[in-house]
Simulated scan of single mutants.
Amino acid sequence: MSLFIRIVFAIAACALMAVAAALLVYAPYVVLRDSLAGTAVLHESLLGVVGYLIVAIALFDVAKYFFEEEVPAGRERRSAGDARRGLTKFISTIIIAIFLEALVLIFETARDDVTEVKYAALLVLAGCVTLVSLGLFQRLSASVEQTVGPEPDTKDEEKQSPKDAGRLAS
Rank of each mutant, 00 (worst) to 15 (best):
A73N: 12
L53I: 13
E76C: 05
R75W: 09
D82W: 13
L59C: 02
A40N: 12
A15W: 12
V31F: 14
G81Q: 13
A21K: 08
L87M: 11
V71R: 02
A10H: 04
A83D: 14
V71D: 01
A13P: 03
F66C: 10
T88K: 03
L23G: 00
E76N: 11
S79K: 02
K64R: 10
R77C: 07
A15K: 08
V30Q: 06
T88M: 12
A27S: 00
A63G: 09
I11V: 11
L36Y: 05
F9W: 06
L32P: 02
A73D: 12
C14L: 14
R85M: 06
E70I: 07
L46E: 11
L47D: 10
A58L: 11
A27V: 01
L23D: 01
R33L: 05
G51D: 11
G86R: 13
P28I: 00
V55W: 06
V30Y: 02
G38L: 03
I54R: 03
R78Q: 14
A56D: 03
Y26T: 00
G74E: 07
K89S: 04
V55Y: 01
A27G: 00
A58E: 06
A20P: 03
G38W: 01
A10Y: 05
V50F: 15
S92G: 12
Y65M: 09
A15G: 14
V50P: 05
T39F: 11
G86H: 09
A12W: 00
E68N: 02
V41Y: 09
V30T: 05
S45Q: 15
L46N: 11
G86A: 15
G48L: 14
A40T: 08
A73F: 14
E44R: 15
G74M: 05
V50G: 13
T88D: 10
Y52W: 12
S92D: 03
R85F: 04
S79E: 14
A37V: 12
A20C: 05
P28G: 00
V62M: 07
L87N: 14
A15N: 12
V71G: 01
G86Q: 13
A56W: 00
R75I: 08
D34A: 06
A73W: 12
F66N: 08
